[in-house]
Design a protein around this nucleic acid. Structure first.
Lengths: 129, 129
DNA sequence: GCTTGACTCTGTAGTAACTACAGGGTTTAG
DNA sequence: CTAAACCCTGTAGTTACTACAGAGTCAAGC
Protein backbone atom coordinates (compact mmCIF):
# COMPACT_ATOMS: atom_id res chain seq x y z
CA UNK A 1 0.00 0.00 0.00
CA UNK A 2 1.48 3.37 -0.89
CA UNK A 3 0.66 6.67 0.67
CA UNK A 4 -2.18 7.63 -1.66
CA UNK A 5 -4.04 4.39 -1.05
CA UNK A 6 -3.60 4.69 2.69
CA UNK A 7 -4.86 8.25 2.47
CA UNK A 8 -7.92 7.13 0.54
CA UNK A 9 -8.75 4.24 2.81
CA UNK A 10 -8.28 6.37 5.91
CA UNK A 11 -9.91 9.51 4.52
CA UNK A 12 -6.90 11.50 5.60
CA UNK A 13 -4.82 13.84 3.41
CA UNK A 14 -1.46 12.56 2.21
CA UNK A 15 0.33 15.55 3.73
CA UNK A 16 -1.13 14.80 7.13
CA UNK A 17 0.19 11.23 7.01
CA UNK A 18 3.69 12.49 6.18
CA UNK A 19 3.31 15.06 8.93
CA UNK A 20 2.38 12.43 11.52
CA UNK A 21 5.45 10.49 10.51
CA UNK A 22 7.65 13.56 10.82
CA UNK A 23 6.54 14.34 14.36
CA UNK A 24 6.92 10.70 15.36
CA UNK A 25 3.26 9.79 15.74
CA UNK A 26 3.22 7.28 12.93
CA UNK A 27 6.07 4.74 12.66
CA UNK A 28 8.26 5.10 9.59
CA UNK A 29 7.22 2.67 6.85
CA UNK A 30 9.56 0.70 4.60
CA UNK A 31 10.53 2.24 1.30
CA UNK A 32 10.18 0.78 -2.17
CA UNK A 33 13.27 0.78 -4.39
CA UNK A 34 12.15 4.09 -5.87
CA UNK A 35 11.93 5.68 -2.43
CA UNK A 36 8.13 5.62 -2.14
CA UNK A 37 6.66 4.79 1.27
CA UNK A 38 5.19 1.30 1.57
CA UNK A 39 2.59 0.74 4.28
CA UNK A 40 1.13 -2.43 5.74
CA UNK A 41 -2.06 -3.08 7.65
CA UNK A 42 -0.45 -2.34 10.99
CA UNK A 43 0.32 1.17 9.79
CA UNK A 44 -3.30 1.57 8.77
CA UNK A 45 -4.41 0.63 12.26
CA UNK A 46 -1.98 3.07 13.85
CA UNK A 47 -3.26 5.83 11.65
CA UNK A 48 -6.79 4.86 12.54
CA UNK A 49 -5.98 5.18 16.21
CA UNK A 50 -4.46 8.61 15.67
CA UNK A 51 -7.42 9.83 13.65
CA UNK A 52 -9.96 8.57 16.15
CA UNK A 53 -8.06 10.18 19.00
CA UNK A 54 -8.16 13.39 17.04
CA UNK A 55 -11.92 13.24 16.66
CA UNK A 56 -12.04 12.71 20.41
CA UNK A 57 -10.13 15.96 20.85
CA UNK A 58 -6.87 14.53 22.15
CA UNK A 59 -3.80 16.68 21.66
CA UNK A 60 -0.81 15.27 19.79
CA UNK A 61 1.01 14.91 23.07
CA UNK A 62 -1.79 12.85 24.53
CA UNK A 63 -1.84 10.72 21.41
CA UNK A 64 1.90 10.24 21.81
CA UNK A 65 1.38 9.07 25.37
CA UNK A 66 -1.34 6.70 24.23
CA UNK A 67 0.90 5.46 21.41
CA UNK A 68 3.66 4.81 23.89
CA UNK A 69 1.30 2.72 25.97
CA UNK A 70 -0.12 0.90 22.96
CA UNK A 71 3.37 0.00 21.75
CA UNK A 72 4.08 -2.05 24.85
CA UNK A 73 3.59 -5.80 24.75
CA UNK A 74 1.17 -5.60 27.64
CA UNK A 75 -0.50 -2.21 27.34
CA UNK A 76 -1.13 -0.82 30.81
CA UNK A 77 -4.85 -0.46 30.91
CA UNK A 78 -4.70 1.70 34.02
CA UNK A 79 -2.58 4.29 32.18
CA UNK A 80 -5.05 4.40 29.33
CA UNK A 81 -7.83 4.86 31.78
CA UNK A 82 -6.17 7.81 33.51
CA UNK A 83 -5.45 9.41 30.14
CA UNK A 84 -9.13 9.03 29.33
CA UNK A 85 -10.23 10.49 32.63
CA UNK A 86 -7.85 13.45 32.38
CA UNK A 87 -9.08 14.20 28.92
CA UNK A 88 -12.67 13.89 29.99
CA UNK A 89 -12.00 16.61 32.57
CA UNK A 90 -10.63 18.89 29.82
CA UNK A 91 -13.56 18.21 27.55
CA UNK A 92 -16.02 18.99 30.31
CA UNK A 93 -14.24 22.24 31.11
CA UNK A 94 -14.49 23.25 27.47
CA UNK A 95 -18.16 22.32 27.50
CA UNK A 96 -18.76 24.59 30.49
CA UNK A 97 -16.84 27.45 28.87
CA UNK A 98 -18.79 27.13 25.66
CA UNK A 99 -22.07 26.97 27.54
CA UNK A 100 -21.18 30.24 29.24
CA UNK A 101 -20.38 31.76 25.87
CA UNK A 102 -23.69 30.57 24.51
CA UNK A 103 -25.59 32.09 27.44
CA UNK A 104 -23.77 35.40 27.11
CA UNK A 105 -24.42 35.51 23.36
CA UNK A 106 -28.11 34.78 23.88
CA UNK A 107 -28.32 37.54 26.44
CA UNK A 108 -26.58 40.00 24.11
CA UNK A 109 -28.81 39.00 21.23
CA UNK A 110 -31.86 39.70 23.37
CA UNK A 111 -30.51 43.20 24.04
CA UNK A 112 -30.42 43.75 20.34
CA UNK A 113 -34.16 43.16 20.17
CA UNK A 114 -35.43 43.78 16.69
CA UNK A 115 -32.10 44.89 15.33
CA UNK A 116 -33.13 48.28 14.02
CA UNK A 117 -32.26 50.58 16.87
CA UNK A 118 -29.94 53.34 15.83
CA UNK A 119 -27.29 53.05 18.46
CA UNK A 120 -26.21 49.56 19.32
CA UNK A 121 -26.67 48.41 22.92
CA UNK A 122 -24.43 45.41 22.27
CA UNK A 123 -21.38 47.48 21.36
CA UNK A 124 -22.15 49.82 24.24
CA UNK A 125 -22.19 46.95 26.67
CA UNK A 126 -19.02 45.36 25.34
CA UNK A 127 -17.09 48.62 25.66
CA UNK A 128 -18.69 49.81 28.87
CA UNK A 129 -16.77 50.74 32.02
CA UNK B 1 -1.68 56.18 30.54
CA UNK B 2 1.23 54.16 29.24
CA UNK B 3 1.17 50.58 28.15
CA UNK B 4 1.96 49.00 31.52
CA UNK B 5 -0.89 50.82 33.23
CA UNK B 6 -3.32 49.91 30.50
CA UNK B 7 -2.16 46.31 30.78
CA UNK B 8 -2.74 46.33 34.53
CA UNK B 9 -6.14 47.94 34.37
CA UNK B 10 -7.26 45.60 31.60
CA UNK B 11 -5.60 42.47 32.98
CA UNK B 12 -4.03 41.87 29.61
CA UNK B 13 -0.33 41.29 28.93
CA UNK B 14 1.64 44.17 27.45
CA UNK B 15 2.74 42.04 24.50
CA UNK B 16 -0.86 41.27 23.63
CA UNK B 17 -1.72 44.96 23.51
CA UNK B 18 1.15 45.64 21.13
CA UNK B 19 0.09 42.62 19.13
CA UNK B 20 -3.49 43.87 18.78
CA UNK B 21 -2.11 47.16 17.55
CA UNK B 22 0.13 45.44 15.02
CA UNK B 23 -2.70 43.45 13.47
CA UNK B 24 -4.91 46.52 13.37
CA UNK B 25 -7.40 45.58 16.06
CA UNK B 26 -6.46 48.38 18.41
CA UNK B 27 -6.02 51.93 17.02
CA UNK B 28 -2.48 53.31 17.24
CA UNK B 29 -2.04 55.56 20.25
CA UNK B 30 -0.13 58.85 20.37
CA UNK B 31 3.51 58.70 21.35
CA UNK B 32 5.26 60.60 24.12
CA UNK B 33 8.44 62.51 23.18
CA UNK B 34 10.48 59.48 24.22
CA UNK B 35 8.53 57.21 21.88
CA UNK B 36 6.43 55.49 24.54
CA UNK B 37 2.80 54.77 23.71
CA UNK B 38 0.26 57.04 25.39
CA UNK B 39 -3.29 55.74 25.75
CA UNK B 40 -6.53 57.48 26.66
CA UNK B 41 -9.81 56.15 27.98
CA UNK B 42 -11.16 55.48 24.51
CA UNK B 43 -8.31 53.07 23.91
CA UNK B 44 -9.13 51.32 27.15
CA UNK B 45 -12.71 50.83 25.99
CA UNK B 46 -11.59 49.45 22.64
CA UNK B 47 -9.32 47.00 24.36
CA UNK B 48 -12.16 46.03 26.67
CA UNK B 49 -14.36 45.28 23.68
CA UNK B 50 -11.65 43.13 22.12
CA UNK B 51 -11.04 41.20 25.33
CA UNK B 52 -14.72 40.56 25.93
CA UNK B 53 -15.19 39.38 22.38
CA UNK B 54 -12.31 37.01 22.94
CA UNK B 55 -13.94 35.50 26.03
CA UNK B 56 -17.03 35.07 23.87
CA UNK B 57 -14.96 33.01 21.46
CA UNK B 58 -14.97 35.42 18.53
CA UNK B 59 -12.10 35.04 16.08
CA UNK B 60 -9.88 38.03 15.32
CA UNK B 61 -11.62 38.42 11.99
CA UNK B 62 -15.01 38.60 13.64
CA UNK B 63 -13.67 41.14 16.12
CA UNK B 64 -12.34 43.14 13.17
CA UNK B 65 -15.78 43.10 11.58
CA UNK B 66 -17.33 44.19 14.84
CA UNK B 67 -14.71 46.91 15.21
CA UNK B 68 -15.47 48.13 11.74
CA UNK B 69 -19.11 48.41 12.66
CA UNK B 70 -18.41 50.04 16.02
CA UNK B 71 -16.21 52.66 14.38
CA UNK B 72 -19.09 54.04 12.35
CA UNK B 73 -20.95 57.10 13.58
CA UNK B 74 -24.18 55.17 13.58
CA UNK B 75 -23.26 51.55 14.23
CA UNK B 76 -25.53 49.28 12.21
CA UNK B 77 -27.27 47.25 14.84
CA UNK B 78 -28.51 44.74 12.30
CA UNK B 79 -24.95 43.89 11.30
CA UNK B 80 -23.99 43.33 14.91
CA UNK B 81 -26.96 41.12 15.35
CA UNK B 82 -26.10 38.94 12.37
CA UNK B 83 -22.52 38.64 13.59
CA UNK B 84 -23.89 37.50 16.92
CA UNK B 85 -26.23 34.99 15.34
CA UNK B 86 -23.53 33.57 13.06
CA UNK B 87 -21.23 33.14 15.99
CA UNK B 88 -23.94 31.54 18.05
CA UNK B 89 -24.31 28.93 15.32
CA UNK B 90 -20.57 28.20 15.52
CA UNK B 91 -20.62 27.95 19.28
CA UNK B 92 -23.55 25.56 19.20
CA UNK B 93 -21.81 23.38 16.64
CA UNK B 94 -18.76 23.20 18.89
CA UNK B 95 -21.02 22.35 21.82
CA UNK B 96 -22.53 19.46 19.87
CA UNK B 97 -19.09 18.21 18.81
CA UNK B 98 -17.79 18.32 22.37
CA UNK B 99 -20.89 16.59 23.66
CA UNK B 100 -20.24 13.78 21.18
CA UNK B 101 -16.65 13.57 22.39
CA UNK B 102 -17.81 13.41 25.96
CA UNK B 103 -20.24 10.59 25.19
CA UNK B 104 -17.60 8.63 23.31
CA UNK B 105 -15.10 9.06 26.12
CA UNK B 106 -17.61 7.92 28.71
CA UNK B 107 -18.39 4.87 26.61
CA UNK B 108 -14.69 4.04 26.23
CA UNK B 109 -14.09 4.53 29.92
CA UNK B 110 -16.86 2.09 30.70
CA UNK B 111 -15.12 -0.47 28.49
CA UNK B 112 -12.06 -0.09 30.62
CA UNK B 113 -14.03 -1.25 33.66
CA UNK B 114 -11.78 -1.62 36.64
CA UNK B 115 -8.62 -0.77 34.76
CA UNK B 116 -6.63 -3.88 35.58
CA UNK B 117 -7.27 -6.09 32.60
CA UNK B 118 -4.13 -7.16 30.87
CA UNK B 119 -4.95 -6.27 27.31
CA UNK B 120 -6.62 -2.95 26.78
CA UNK B 121 -10.04 -2.97 25.12
CA UNK B 122 -9.81 0.77 24.56
CA UNK B 123 -6.71 0.58 22.39
CA UNK B 124 -8.18 -2.42 20.61
CA UNK B 125 -11.31 -0.51 19.77
CA UNK B 126 -9.46 2.60 18.62
CA UNK B 127 -7.30 0.57 16.25
CA UNK B 128 -9.94 -1.89 15.17
CA UNK B 129 -10.97 -2.54 11.56
C1' DG C 1 27.11 61.81 39.44
C1' DC C 2 26.21 57.16 39.04
C1' DT C 3 24.16 52.91 39.36
C1' DT C 4 20.31 49.84 39.78
C1' DG C 5 15.89 48.33 38.71
C1' DA C 6 11.70 48.87 36.40
C1' DC C 7 9.78 50.26 32.43
C1' DT C 8 9.58 50.81 27.31
C1' DC C 9 10.91 50.01 22.34
C1' DT C 10 11.45 46.94 17.84
C1' DG C 11 11.88 42.74 15.75
C1' DT C 12 12.18 37.85 15.46
C1' DA C 13 11.12 33.10 16.71
C1' DG C 14 8.34 29.73 18.99
C1' DT C 15 3.70 27.22 19.98
C1' DA C 16 -0.34 23.47 17.94
C1' DA C 17 -1.85 20.97 14.29
C1' DC C 18 -1.86 21.05 10.33
C1' DT C 19 -2.21 22.93 5.00
C1' DA C 20 -0.24 24.51 0.81
C1' DC C 21 3.04 25.16 -2.19
C1' DA C 22 7.78 24.94 -4.91
C1' DG C 23 10.61 22.30 -7.44
C1' DG C 24 11.82 18.12 -8.45
C1' DG C 25 11.57 12.63 -9.77
C1' DT C 26 8.56 8.28 -11.31
C1' DT C 27 5.01 5.60 -13.27
C1' DT C 28 1.26 4.57 -16.20
C1' DA C 29 -2.17 5.26 -19.98
C1' DG C 30 -2.99 6.49 -24.58
C1' DC D 1 6.59 9.91 -26.47
C1' DT D 2 4.13 12.78 -23.79
C1' DA D 3 0.73 14.04 -20.45
C1' DA D 4 -1.54 13.04 -16.24
C1' DA D 5 -1.26 11.30 -11.94
C1' DC D 6 1.46 9.88 -8.57
C1' DC D 7 5.48 10.38 -5.22
C1' DC D 8 9.58 12.89 -2.86
C1' DT D 9 11.80 16.78 0.32
C1' DG D 10 11.68 21.08 2.31
C1' DT D 11 9.86 25.47 3.44
C1' DA D 12 6.31 28.90 4.43
C1' DG D 13 1.64 30.03 5.82
C1' DT D 14 -2.34 29.75 9.21
C1' DT D 15 -4.49 31.51 14.35
C1' DA D 16 -3.82 33.98 18.41
C1' DC D 17 -0.80 34.77 20.83
C1' DT D 18 3.83 34.27 24.05
C1' DA D 19 8.67 34.74 24.79
C1' DC D 20 12.78 36.36 24.12
C1' DA D 21 17.05 39.36 22.37
C1' DG D 22 19.10 43.51 22.35
C1' DA D 23 18.49 48.10 23.01
C1' DG D 24 16.91 52.77 24.98
C1' DT D 25 14.68 55.59 29.06
C1' DC D 26 13.43 57.01 33.56
C1' DA D 27 13.07 57.53 38.74
C1' DA D 28 15.06 56.54 43.22
C1' DG D 29 18.76 55.89 46.29
C1' DC D 30 23.74 56.36 47.62
Amino acid sequence: MQIGQLANRSECPVETIRYYEKIGLLPEPDRLPNGYRSYNDQHRKWLQLILRCRTLGFTQNEVKRLSGIAKQDQPACADVRSLLVEHLVDVRKKLRDLKHMEDALIRLKAKCQNGNLNDCPVIDELMDS
